[in-house]
Amino acid sequence: MTTSLVDVASSDVTLRGFLHGLPGVDRVGADQRAAALATRSIKTTAKAQAIDLAISMVDLTTLEGSDTVGKVRAMCAKAIHPDPTDTSVPRVAAVCVYPDMVAHAVRALAGTGVKVASVATAFPSGRSSLAVKVADTTMAVEAGADEIDMVIDRGAFLSGDYTKVYDEIVAIKAACATAHLKVILETGELATYDNVRRASWLAMIAGADFIKTSTGKVAPAATLPVTLIMLEAVRDFRLRTGRMVGVKPAGGIRTTKDAVKNLVLVKETAGDDWLSPEWFRLGASSLLNDLLMQRQKLTTGRYAGPDYFTLD
């Protein structure tokens, strides 16, 4: 990172000055751009490429109070072999679970290359002390999580206390050690596109490896314009610092069409460099079976019924 951006966080005043000095986002224009890109016609070979790419980018997620070891193990099996009848289907990028489930997921996925991501920091609201958030993170990391999905303190952000948000991200990043840090902005609660852009930069300056739209617990979650603005942010951040940051839209991406639209956004906004699971993820659960169904339709010419796709 360049020294200029380290200096940005040296005081409340400089941090605020920097974030508010970013170019504004015109809501109407951003919505139109996202809508225009959504009309791209992705067919035949392009669709086949997009489906496999999307499968390999899925963070297969279960974040329920009712999660059990059995449920997590079953989801891990699905992550390794999304379609047991077709070995040419790529495995997904990661599974995403609560911290207490990390150890079970790590055991189930050992040696498969599928990563284990854990939400942390008093997910989903983030309403707790920094000590609790750090402990939450440490617990997941010690259990073997490769990736930590933290939430920012939206209350602090909306009240203008950017330093508090920054300091928390820095502290969690330190607690992550070698684990990758995804910072969830919960854009549905930030409400404005200007806020989305500022929060993106704030997270990146603080050391985020990924910026993620949503917890999936708040609507609206990952809308196309919000993902567009975050992709612009990582693109501009690399121009400024040379460092690449990944993007993960999560929540509300249910169909192959949704996934393909996201990939079009990546391709035409951040560029081809981001078109890999290393730099772009799709946080989802039901999306995977739709991708598998469309994939089978492309290869066989027929749709199979939902019972031909596993429900783990």
Partner: peptide, 8 residues
């Protein structure tokens, strides 16, 4: 790889 195929 992700390249748009012709969509006439």
């Amino acid at each position: 790889m992700f390249e748009y195929a012709p969509a006439p």
